[in-house]
């Protein structure tokens, strides 16, 4: 069974979102780039599937230590 509580207030959900945002901001820039590329893949796929103009995600190799 999952230990994660399933009943949460709206405020709690927004607080978690904010804390996730701050945690992401504090990560090394190389890790944030990895997240950026995933974000590009998601937005490009969504735009393509909706028939909107889309840009190709970057096709790059990230440094090995990431």
């Amino acid at each position: 069974m999952s230990e994660v509580p399933t009943l949460k207030s709206q405020d709690e959900l927004f607080r978690e979102k904010l804390s996730h945002r701050r945690a992401m901001a504090a990560k090394p820039v190389e890790e944030k780039f990895e997240a950026l590329i995933k974000l590009q893949q998601i937005t490009s796929t969504a735009a393509r599937q909706a028939g909107r103009v889309y840009q190709e995600p970057w096709n790059i190799k990230l440094p090995d230590h990431i």
Partner: peptide, 11 residues
């Protein structure tokens, strides 16, 4: 901006 805050989609 990504050097300081969470990433937003950009190309």
């Amino acid at each position: 901006l990504i050097f300081y805050v969470e990433p937003t989609a950009t190309y």
